[in-house]
Design a protein around this nucleic acid. Structure first.
Lengths: 251, 251
DNA sequence: CGGGACTTTGAGCAAATTCAACCATTGTGG
DNA sequence: CCACAATGGTTGAATTTGCTCAAAGTCCCG
């Protein structure tokens, strides 16, 4: 147990600034630009936004921010996956959303974040100081327009989730979830059939308002009825998307 | 059964225009202005917004719009109460929100409304054509800023509701609901202790993801333990708000 | 004052949870 | 390289919470 003397006065931040002209523009070949708030920007506007941006790759199971922290930053996900988590004092938790490349992080706040954000995998993020980004809205109303549109979609998705949590059976919830992942993959231009399910049974349960055992049992049920096939590495083949869709709405 | 010949070519719309200079300005003594999107506007800007506004008083149990209708209008509630409803094909329904004077209606869309909106009581609404309102954003970015702020709050509230629906017990849900109503009344400058509960047990159930019997049983439980007292006309006295609050988070 | 809508309460039931055991995969250190 | 611990997943049995079905009871409102 030898104590290591660290020569650094401050621990190095994971977040690297992007306004160094000597470095290549990190937004230059951004793969997800068209699906982020940046899609609204022309080259010149993009430069202004990039100037106040920092980015980082966080390891798996890292916390980006905690529920009730001051909402000082907003983020774009460029690679990896995240979960948004709300906790009750006794430890029960609800995952309010999963985020993937191209998704925006930090719409639900009120001076303080409404939930925590944790990485599922190593994840790359672009970070923007919220106040300074909001200041840019004056010059770039398109940016604000875009965020309002994103918020609208989020709100519609939140209402779908309320219907799922309040009124669907366990089986309907899982079927809905698999279709939701498939639709998300489609939006992101990824294969929609053998979908990748990058979260544990426990995380799926915390998202669907169930226990991990109930989720597992229903995976088995879907499997034995021939609706899905479980492949290695958490991939799932949707054998009967039509039937699954009917199942999802309890029809 | 005598057929009545109606002399009208078109049925009279409930919605009255507000751009008639001969009429008194309907926004002149709006009681809820400070809590709506209009709070951001100066007198001159308000006039422009009022020009494209129509308003109406709808009777109880009227539908303002249906889920999946084209989202052509947005609304301000000036008086009364509404519910937002999502339905499953077999008739199960989830209420995703209740709206009261000062609330904005129509944030969650995606070309089409994400849910239906129905009045609980006779309700007065201001209606704005969405496209024309959005066109005004160019001249009045403050308006858009305000809506983004409202959407943020809605999103945070939606996440609270997901935690409630996914992870709270029936008792915790009802306690949370009563405190939510109390907090809403406070925001609106209304009495927070004998709160008015203007919805039926069935509507509360559809909001909390329960059955009406379970809601009723838990009202009784709270009553016999001395947490609340049920008064005439749907009023509820919160005798132990502190204890109720602890109950709401299962602590 | 009568009728319909809403509410309360009870009894039995079912879906999902809890508790528990076991299996599979992966990564680590001896 | 293999044993083994750790993590995650599956399955079973017992339990519980909330649901369904049913019967009264209450409150408005005309």
């Amino acid at each position: 147990m030898t104590a290591t003397v660290t020569p650094l006065r401050r621990p190095p931040s994971a977040w690297a600034a992007c306004n160094d002209a000597s470095l290549p523009d990190p937004c230059r070949d951004c793969q997800v630009r068209q699906r982020t708030m940046c899609a609204a920007l022309d080259a010149d506007e993009q430069r202004h936004v990039t100037e106040l941006m920092t980015n980082a790759e966080l390891p798996a199971h890292a916390t980006v921010f905690h529920e009730a922290d001051p909402a000082d930053y907003v983020y774009n996900v460029t690679d990896g996956a995240l979960k948004l988590v709300k906790m009750l004092p006794d430890g029960r938790q609800q995952i309010t959303g999963f985020l993937f490349p191209g998704d925006f992080l930090g719409l639900a706040y009120n001076e303080r974040y409404a939930c925590s954000a944790e990485t599922l995998h190593p994840t790359r993020l672009c970070r923007f100081p919220r106040k300074r980004l909001e200041a840019l809205f004056r010059e770039m109303p398109k940016l604000e327009r875009r965020l309002l549109g994103l918020a609208s979609n989020e709100l519609a998705a939140a209402q779908d989730q309320m219907l799922l949590l309040g009124r669907k059976t366990a089986r309907e919830r899982l079927a809905s979830f698999l279709l939701m992942l498939s639709a998300g993959a489609k939006r992101r231009g990824l294969p929609t059939d053998p979908i990748v399910v990058p979260m544990t049974r426990n995380e799926i349960a915390d998202y669907l308002g169930l226990t991990l055992e109930t989720v597992s049992r229903n995976f088995s049920w879907l499997k034995t009825r021939g609706f899905i096939r479980l492949l290695p590495a958490g991939a799932v083949r949707l054998l009967e998307p039509e039937a699954l869709s009917r199942l999802a709405d309890g029809d």
